[in-house]
Design a protein around this nucleic acid. Structure first.
Lengths: 212, 212
DNA sequence: TATAAGTAAGAACAAGTGTTCGTGTCAACA
DNA sequence: TGTTGACACGAACACTTGTTCTTACTTATA
C-alpha cells in the first residue's frame, strides 16, 4: 500500500497528540493552524485520504467529528472508584448519591480486569488495623467493595454496626438471628452481634497495596 | 451543600453516557434535544451551576468544550503496565523494548497513586506459589515491579537465576559474594546462591489481588 | 404578602466549524 | 507530449454551536 504523504502523517500525529491533551478532538482549523496549512480544504482533502485508509473516522456535519481508528474508544474501559476514608471511621459508608457529601480522599482507577461489573456500585476503603491479616489484607491496603445488602456465609464484607457506630471488614456468618463477624487474625476473637445490628454495605472484590 | 435539581442531575448523567458512547463531548443542543429542554439558554444556565459546583469544566467559545470533572482527562494520567506471564516462567523478564516479543497476557492499568514514576520502567507479573505468603502476597496476585538492576538489602525483588533459568520473587540480601533470597513463608528455606548467578530485574512496588 | 433566588423560555446574534467550488502546480504514466 | 492523479490553495457559503439579553414563572424566605 502506498505510503502516507508527510503532511498526512503529520495530521495523524497531531490528532493523536491533541487527544492526549484534550477531552475533545481537534477541528479542521485546529489542524490547519498547527500544521501551517493555508486552506481548510487542504485539511479536508487529506482527512478524506486518511478516512479512505481507515485510519480515521469522520462524523459528517458535526463539529470535532474526527475519531482515530484503533484508539481505545473507552474512557468507559477505565473505572473510577472513590476511596472513602478509612474503615472504622465512625459512620456508615454512604450510599453512592451521597458520596459527594463525604470526604472522598481520592479515586482509585482500575481496568475492568480488577473492577468487575463495569465499576457499578463499587467503592473503596483504606483498611485500618490488622484484623484481616491472615486473609492477606494489611493495614493501609485499599480494598474495593461491591455495594450490596446481602451476602453468603464466608464472604468478606464491610458491615456497619449500628450500636457501635462503626464500619468493620470481616468474614460474615449468619447464625440464626445472630451474626458472627470473623477476623482473619488468629490473635483476635470473632464479634457476635444481633443480626438487626448489622448492615452489610459491600462485599470484597479486590485488594491493592502500595509497597514502599 | 444543596442537592442538584433533577434536571441538573439528568444533564450530568447524559454527558457521562454521551462520552461513554462517543469520542467527543455533547453540544448544548445535543443536551437540549435529549432532555427536551426548550431553550439553549436553559442548558447554558444549568451547565453554569454544574461548573460552579466543580462537576464539569467548560472551555469557553469552542464547540463541544464540556468536560466532566473526575473523569480521567487522559490516558496520560493512567498507566498501562504489561502483565508478563507468571513468575517462575523459566526465562528472564525481558527488557521493556522486548516486551512485545513475549506473551504479554494482559495489561493492568493503574492511576499514578499506585503506579509511581509515571509508569516508567514498570512491569507486572502474576505470582505463582506461596513463597511470599507471609509478606501478604498470595498465589495469583499481580505484582507491579520497578525495573532496576540494584536494590537494598531487605527489598522484595524479582531476580533471574541464571543457572536455574528461572525468575523468583524474594527478599534480597547480599552477604559477601553470596546472595540470600529469603522467602516470606516460614515453611520454606532461603535460597543461597553466588551473587554472579543473580540478575535483579525489578523491585516490588505494589500488589493487586482479585477476590472471587 | 412581598421579595429574592432559582429556574425556565424565546429570540437573536456572534462565533466556530465543516463543506463545496473553481483553479493551479507538480509528478507519474501511457 | 498529453493526460491523469495527487496535492495545494483561496474564497465563499452553509451549518453548527455557544453566548447574551430580556422576560416570565415557581419556589423559598423574610
Amino acid at each position: 500500500m502506498k505510503k502516507l504523504s508527510g503532511r498526512q502523517q503529520a495530521i495523524l500525529d497531531f490528532i493523536g497528540d491533541f487527544l492526549d491533551n484534550n477531552d475533545y478532538p481537534p477541528t479542521i482549523r485546529d489542524i490547519q493552524h498547527e500544521l501551517n496549512i493555508s486552506s481548510t480544504s487542504v485539511v479536508d482533502y487529506n482527512l478524506k485520504v486518511l478516512e479512505d485508509r481507515d485510519l480515521i473516522r469522520r462524523n459528517r456535519n458535526i463539529s470535532r467529528g474526527i475519531e482515530l481508528v484503533g484508539r481505545t474508544p473507552g474512557r468507559s474501559t477505565m473505572v473510577s472508584i472513590p476511596v472513602i476514608g478509612q474503615i472504622a471511621a465512625g459512620q456508615p459508608i454512604p450510599v453512592p448519591e451521597a458520596f459527594s457529601e463525604y470526604d472522598v480522599s481520592s479515586m482509585i482507577e482500575l481496568s475492568p480486569e480488577l473492577a468487575p461489573n463495569n465499576g457499578h456500585n463499587l467503592f473503596a476503603l483504606r483498611v485500618k488495623g490488622y484484623s484481616m491479616i491472615d486473609a492477606l489484607i494489611n493495614d493501609g491496603d485499599i480494598v474495593v467493595l461491591k455495594q450490596q445488602a446481602t451476602c453468603e456465609n464466608g464472604d468478606t464484607v464491610a458491615v456497619w454496626l449500628k450500636d457501635e457506630r462503626e464500619t468493620t471488614l470481616k468474614r460474615f456468618y449468619l447464625e440464626g438471628d445472630r451474626v458472627r463477624l470473623q477476623p482473619e487474625n488468629r490473635t483476635m476473637d470473632p464479634i457476635y452481634t444481633a443480626a438487626a445490628n448489622v448492615e452489610i454495605q459491600g462485599r470484597l472484590v479486590s485488594v491493592h497495596r502500595q509497597v514502599d
